[in-house]
Amino acid sequence: MPKINGNEIRPGNILEHDGGLWVAVKVAHVKPGKGGAFAQVEMKNIRDNRKLNERFRSADKVERVRLEQKDQQFLYESDGLLHFMDAETFEQVTIPADIFGDRRPFLQDGMTIVVEYYEEEALNAQLPDKVTCTVTETEPAVKGQTAANSFKPAILDNGVRIMIPPFVGEGEAVIVSTETMEYVERA
């Protein structure tokens, strides 16, 4: 694994530090009036979500980890485990469902996602940026309610509650951002 200097750490970098894997969340370069400059790095542990603030001087060496990314196709879920098939080797892999957190309902049958591996351990999974869902329950549109920023609550076919514009009705397909869990546009 490549070693980088402490002042080369950027947000999003994955570092091996204190026997664990950490992702750099925020990096601030500080030059105090007295003494040498350093990078103040806020890190989050990939495995257990602990946070850590650490100072790295430019002379400090840190292990930068590169994760292997693989395309995986979602097959089914059983007992809190998600079963995927590797797109290249057709090998089946099981991953804990909590790897997605609150974005889990957006995972659909047959969907291809990107899973990041460190050695043989799945650490992160990325859903597509936008997913098409169907509105199953919402209030009817009120005539004359055409204010630009008015939204109404809706429940999607996967059970997620979002806010949608008044012109979207039940049974319509909408595109939802998996990052912000908000309405983007009609499908």
Rank of each mutant, 00 (worst) to 15 (best):
T134Q: 14
V114C: 10
Q92W: 00
E121V: 13
D98K: 10
T89A: 01
E116I: 07
T89M: 00
A125V: 09
M85N: 02
A141I: 10
F100R: 04
E121R: 15
A154P: 04
F100E: 05
D129Q: 11
L127E: 09
Q145W: 11
Q126M: 14
L107Q: 02
G101I: 02
A122T: 04
V142K: 14
K143L: 15
N124C: 11
T138V: 02
F100C: 09
Q126W: 13
F167D: 12
L107T: 02
L156A: 01
M163L: 14
L123Q: 09
I155D: 00
Q126V: 14
E119T: 09
V93W: 00
D157E: 04
Q92R: 13
D157H: 03
E88R: 07
D86E: 10
T138Y: 02
L156G: 00
P153V: 07
A125H: 06
F84D: 01
A125D: 10
V93L: 00
Q126L: 15
E170M: 14
L156V: 01
N158W: 01
N124A: 11
I162K: 01
I164G: 01
N124M: 11
G159F: 01
T132K: 13
A148N: 09
D129W: 11
V115E: 00
R161T: 13
P166H: 07
A87N: 07
M163Y: 05
R103K: 14
V131E: 12
F106A: 04
M85R: 12
G169S: 09
E91P: 00
V160F: 05
K130C: 10
M163W: 06
A148P: 04
E119G: 00
A97Q: 09
G159Q: 04
E137N: 09
F151H: 03
V131D: 05
A154E: 00
E116T: 14
A148S: 11
P166I: 08
A154C: 11
D86R: 00
E121L: 12
F151A: 08
F100A: 08
I164P: 00
Q145E: 12
N149R: 08
I155W: 00
L123S: 06
E137K: 10
N149Q: 08
T138F: 02
V93T: 04
T134D: 07
Q92N: 11
K143M: 14
E121H: 13
A147I: 01
T112V: 15
L123G: 06
K143Q: 15
N158Q: 10
G101C: 09
D102S: 11
K152R: 13
E88V: 10
G169I: 04
T134K: 15
A154G: 11
L156W: 02
G110T: 10
P105E: 03
Q108F: 04
A148F: 10
D129N: 09
I155R: 11
T112Y: 09
Q145Y: 08
Q108C: 08
P140N: 12
T112M: 10
A87W: 03
M111L: 13
E121I: 12
I95F: 03
T94L: 05
F151L: 13
C133S: 13
V160D: 03
